[in-house]
């Protein structure tokens, strides 16, 4: 019962934070510096790990598919499998998981630390709403940067698949043939659906991590607990939302 109450409280406070933050959307032009800083944090600093992970996800996908599909002599269709899997599912979900681990944890730690060391209280007494200064620029940056990361993840994953397809003896498909099949079966709508998913996941991750950070109570030990909670809740939400968003988009 206590856990259900805590979940409902968390949901309610997250919704309140969302409404308050949206109310400050008009202040974005004069918070341009903070918005750019958050774009850098969410986008630029996450890009290398997204690229590395996506490359190997695309590679492994091609390798596994290659071993299975050679039995049926259908390895020429690997491009479609890698293309669709990356665009519709693995690209957005993996990017969201990386954003939760890399960015969400950092947001939760920073805001929890500000809360514990009374910096958030200082903002309130200065009549500077934390939702305006700390949350809104992060949400706006997530809306811009997470789909960009997902798109880059898709492209790098496809490229990884192409390299493995060419240099693995049992597959041996030229990149031209690989990309021709990929282009034929992977449509713009598939990529767009993936980007919409990434957009939703990234926004939810940043919102949840901000809320958990800002609701931290107690001493320094609670900062670590908040970070753990933020990442775990984000991962659960990504996978739960993935099911429902996929249902809606297909």
């Amino acid at each position: 019962m206590k856990q259900i109450t805590a979940i409902l409280e968390g949901f309610g406070s997250t919704l309140q934070l969302l409404i308050r933050s949206i109310g400050y959307a008009g202040t974005l032009p004069r918070q341009w510096g903070r918005f750019i800083e958050q774009c850098y944090m969410i986008g630029y600093t996450t890009l290398p790990i997204v690229a590395i992970l996506s490359f190997f996800i695309g590679s492994v996908l091609a390798l596994q598919a290659g071993y299975s599909m050679q039995n049926f002599g259908t390895q020429q269709f690997i491009g479609s499998l890698v293309g669709l899997s990356m665009a519709r599912e693995l690209g957005p979900v993996m990017v969201a998981i990386l954003v939760a681990g890399r960015v969400g944890s950092a947001i939760a730690a920073e805001l929890a630390s500000m809360k514990v060391y009374q910096e958030v209280d200082a903002l309130v007494t200065m009549n500077i709403p934390p939702a305006r200064m700390l949350v809104m620029p992060r949400l706006a940056a997530s809306l811009v940067m997470v789909p960009v990361l997902a798109l880059i993840g898709d492209l790098v994953g496809w490229f990884g698949g192409a390299i493995v397809s060419k240099y693995t003896a049992i597959i041996s498909i030229e990149p031209e043939a690989y990309f021709a099949v990929l282009r034929h079966y992977t449509h713009f709508k598939d990529v767009l659906n993936g980007l919409v998913k990434a957009e939703i996941f990234g926004f939810v991750v940043v919102l949840v991590c901000c809320n958990i950070g800002l609701n931290t109570r107690g001493g320094p030990r609670e900062i670590g607990a908040s970070v753990t909670r933020a990442v775990v809740v984000s991962l659960i939400l990504i996978l739960v939302l993935d099911y429902f968003v996929t249902q809606i988009l297909t």
């Binding site: 060391y117 910096e119 200082a122 007494t125």
Partner: peptide, 18 residues
């Protein structure tokens, strides 16, 4: 009230933005 009256609190820890 916070908008109408300018109040400033000097926190025990300072609460400076690190």
């Amino acid at each position: 009230t916070r908008e109408r009256v300018r109040m400033a609190l000097v926190f025990q820890s300072g609460a400076l933005f690190n």
